[in-house]
Each structure stands twice: as C-alpha cells, then as structure tokens.
Design a protein around this nucleic acid. Structure first.
Length: 199
DNA sequence: AACAGCCACAACCGCCTTAGT
DNA sequence: GACTAAGGCGGTTGTGGCTGT
C-alpha cells in the first residue's frame, strides 16, 4: 500500500464505520478538549483515528442540536433555491439550515434533488437576465458576509438587513428562512428596485 | 427464495486555505 | 516571507438495505 498523503506511514489508522464505543470516547474527549483541536482530540481519545475523521464524525453525527432525516418541504425548497444561488457551496447552504450538515445536504441533493432541480432547469420560465444578475449579486453578498464575520452591522449600504441577524442561526426559532424569503421571493418585475444594485 | 440493480448515507480522499512558527 | 501542520470543504466511493424481477 502506498504511503498516505497525510504522511502517516506508520501504524494504520482505524477506518470504516464508527462504533458506539468510539462515538462515546470521541464525545468525551471533545467535552474535555473542545471541538477545535482535532489533532489533540484524535491523539487523546485513543481511537486511532485521524483528526479529520474525528472532526467529520462530530460535525455530521455527534454534534448536539443536529437534525437527522425528515427534510421538510420548506427545507427542500430552500436547498433548491440556495443551490441555484450558490452552486455546490454545501457548507454555505448548510449554514442557512440550522441543524443540518453540509454532508447531509450534499447527499440529499445528489440523491433526491439533483434530478428534481434539473427538471426545473429544463423549463426556466422565470429566469430573466435581471434576475440572474440580481442572484449573482446575492451570491457575492453572501460570500462577502461570510468573510467579514468580524464586522457588525451593515456591510453594504445597499443591503438592507442586519449582518448579525443574517448569520445568527444559533437559535432554533430563527430558522434562517426570513432572509432568503426577502431575497428569493421578490419578483424582479413586481419589485424592480431589488435589482437596482446590478446597474 | 434468490439474485440483481438501485438508492441512501456514512466515511474517505485530495485539494485549498489558514494559522502558527 | 517561507515553511509546515491542521482545518475546512467539495467530490467521490463503499456498503448496507430496499425493491423489483
């Protein structure tokens, strides 16, 4: 077997499905060391798993407040809309869906929504040039906001929403749908002022 | 009942970015 | 500024379960 790219040529790491015992050990270790120092967590847990693997397991499965399965129609609709805006930026999309992981959304997209979306794509009755330009601006806004998490308040004077509110999905109730409705439910013909920024 | 094909999901891989020195 | 290790992300693969024949 060729040496792994991560440089670990020594003792082989555990791979494959996680056992309940491993989950328990990992959770305990994260409680002690925090969910950030994955190298430390991997070392101290004694699981013989790499940091990456621990991180993935925690983020996708063990993390508290995680929602599993039963993606609602509302969430599904949001995923489709966000994917139309953001493309395969799964982590960004997941950031708008509290309790959902990028991996889960990615899987759900690939297995459920990919065909559905391409169906919709085949008859792009609502896609106008104006809307496309507006959507591109929204994507730029989102990416920019993600990179400016230290800045509070309005980043772009043309964008009339609060950044902290925009990025705060910590509360179960907020759900993150308001902002997207504000963006996505506008009709460029009915609300031409929404597309002004593209001029 | 047995088998093949399909589907869903967990996990891994490799690349890129970021942080630390 | 250069280098290295770790983290983060998207793409891909492996596998178990389900369904149809």
């Amino acid at each position: 077997m060729a040496p792994r790219k991560d440089g670990s040529t020594k003792k082989p790491m555990n791979r494959g499905a996680w056992t309940p015992v491993e989950d328990q050990k990992l959770a305990q270790c994260i409680q002690t060391h925090g969910a950030k120092k994955w190298k430390t967590v991997a070392d101290k847990s004694g699981l013989n798993r790499c940091g990456k693997s621990c991180r993935l397991r925690w983020l996708n499965y063990l993390r508290p407040n995680i929602k599993r399965g039963n993606i609602s129609d509302e969430e599904e609709d949001l995923i489709i809309r966000l994917h139309k805006l953001l493309g395969n930026r799964w982590s960004l999309i997941a950031g708008r869906l509290p309790g959902r992981t990028d991996n889960e959304i990615k899987n759900y997209w690939n297995s459920h929504l990919c065909k559905k979306a391409s169906h919709i794509e085949e008859k792009p009755e609502t896609s106008t040039t104006q809307e496309t330009i507006a959507q591109n601006n929204i994507v730029e806004d989102i990416v920019m906001l993600e990179s400016k998490d230290s800045i509070s308040g309005s980043v772009n004077s043309d964008v009339s929403f609060d950044v902290n509110e925009f990025l705060d999905f910590s509360t179960e109730g907020s759900y993150g749908f308001d902002w997207v409705n504000r963006y996505l439910e506008f009709d460029p013909i009915q609300f031409p002022e929404n597309t002004k920024r593209s001029e």
